[in-house]
Design a protein around this nucleic acid. Structure first.
Lengths: 204, 204, 204, 204
DNA sequence: AATGAATGAGGATTCATTCAT
DNA sequence: TATGAATGAATCCTCATTCAT
């Protein structure tokens, strides 16, 4: 009887749990669908694409988007999180394997530019005054600024660079250089960014 | 009589002429009013300010704005023409008076940045996909690209720089660096632009 | 053995019974949790507060709210039932202890106003066209109209009042007077309601 | 010649003026169309009817509504202005022609109730917290409160009433009594309002 | 030539209610 | 039974541009 009670309890608990687990799995899958749809729409229409378009592409109602990602910034961050993380994590590795800190910085900036340039409108959104993008800006800074600062600091310590710019300015500048780059075949943001890095160089 | 006729004719001719002259003067004065109003509104609301606001400031109807400046780009160009011209004309002078072509380039870029940074939203408009800004982009390029190219070419010829970037890329890059700079006290577009220029430098 | 069987049976019967009892107790506790949560949310957000908020406050799913209270009116009624009952029951008592039926009516109206005025949005909900509130309206009427009618009838019988208004009109009027009173410090619904009651007064 | 110039000038001035006059006449006619449409829609859908509905009814774009009446309150006020004015102006007249100030007050309240009750949703809007209705509230108060205050004051001075309520409370109360009255055949707001007035009465 | 009234597309956001798990 | 994810209708307001007067 106790056994049955327990069983019953565990069954109902288990049922609840597995239902909840199932629901969660479902929701997670759904989230991924959303992210995929958003990513796809972002490519063609930029990160400011209408919510309705994203919802349509994902085959869900708009409310579903809002449920999962209350703010547009939340959605954008979620879409690009993996790549931002990868970029952040690449910093120390590059520092370790490159010939010099300055070289590492250059390679890291390349990664950053390659990332931004392929994300239609992202670079612009990062600078947008729009309150809805405040968080986006913050996320990028939180995650990448320390990495940039470390590389920059290492280069300075090695005497390769002077104290010309802050890490923030450098990132902001590089970000700016990427704006609209995807539409202009005459313009190579990567090259410009490397020029910036080169400009930091100091002869010993 | 002939004299009188002539006189009369000449008088009426003169009247027509002076009326026409007067009308032209009037129109010019009118245009100037428009430009002043636009400039004032651009300062506070950016170059994308509502047409109605500009018209109101100028004390004319919106139709008048459209008559004189069919596209927004036309208006923006007209507002900033003097400064763009001044910038363009400064190129050769700087080349003549500077210690080196590379130095001249740096000083010229400074002028360009100073100009852009103080024009709320102009740098962004220069990159805008918006059809209404196509002409704006074109004008800036037409007028400034040759100047930049000359400075860049001179520096290259003097062996101060390599062939890293085209004049177009450089201008585009510098323009990009100015986007949103007016709102961010942590960010000094001038410094970044100079970094770019420094990055062009080659040791002999 | 029989004893044991009986015992067992009775035990299991008892188990079932107590389980059922326990379940009922559980359900009741659950309901109470819901009502407490709803009451709390009503205070701050009014009786039209989002279902989700109430569910969240109660720590249950929204579906649970709907199961127990299919319409919002059901929930609102349940939340205020005690107070409505108390108000209803106060009628005869007041009639018994007051100096006159008209005085009793006045005191009873005071009770009613005091109740309504402290329930954010309730008075408005009572008049709402909204289908979801139809039942609410009905409940209040079912329960309170007879009481009001009795008081009013007694006063008329005593010659204190004329047949100016129906009990329904009086209640409706008093209810209306309470709308929005909680937000307006310049407005005293109680005073107005008493004016209404005073207006009923007839000299013998 | 001078004559011609003057003539020309006066012609062009005259043209501009008559164009402007024509435009203004046109616009005025248009405004009336708008007001008629709004009034019609208000009758069926209440004063909170969607702007689009009103525009459709008037056969104009929504922008036209916004141009003429930036705020919903502006529109509502415009629609009812004549009647509010009439109500305001009736006050002194009633005072003059009635048997007593208190009687005048009663008749004036009748006018006010008759006005409100036929305006679907207006009474409710007058109490709405909604910022868009703040102005509406203010207009009614500005225009009618002094009238009510005068009548009330005269009655008090004549010793017919006591100082039970302020003019504001009385108007607020009467306004409240009218909420939803148009939908309820069992409820006569006019009668209730008169009860309120009767309640003010004091025997000498 | 000037005026300024009119048009109407376009996108964000909230929440009651249902129903699969 | 309980959960809570998903749906999607409904309305607001701005502003570039046109064109009748």
């Amino acid at each position: 009887m106790a056994g049955r009670d327990i069983h019953t309890v565990s069954e109902s608990d288990g049922g609840a749990r597995s239902a909840s687990r199932a629901r969660r799995a479902d929701a997670r899958r759904n989230q991924q669908t959303l992210l995929d749809a958003a990513a796809a729409v972002f490519v063609t229409s930029g990160v400011e694409a209408p919510v309705r378009d994203i919802a349509a592409r994902a085959g869900v109602g708009m409310g579903t988007i809002y449920r999962h990602f209350p703010t547009r910034a939340d959605l954008v961050v979620a879409v690009y999180r993996h790549q931002v993380e990868a970029c952040a994590e690449a910093g120390p590795a590059l520092l370790a394997e490159s010939a010099s800190p300055h070289a590492a910085l250059g390679r890291w900036i390349d990664l950053f530019v390659d990332f931004l340039v392929t994300k239609h409108g992202l670079a612009a959104a990062l600078q947008s005054d729009d309150a809805g993008f405040r968080t986006l800006h913050a996320y990028f800074l939180d995650r990448l600024l320390p990495v940039c600062a470390e590389l920059l600091g290492a280069a300075a310590e090695a005497g390769e660079t002077g104290p010309d710019v802050t890490a923030y300015e450098l990132m902001r500048g590089v970000g700016n250089l990427c704006i609209g780059a995807e539409n202009d075949p005459e313009y190579d943001a990567r090259r410009l960014a490397q020029l910036l890095v080169a400009g930091l160089r100091r002869e010993r």
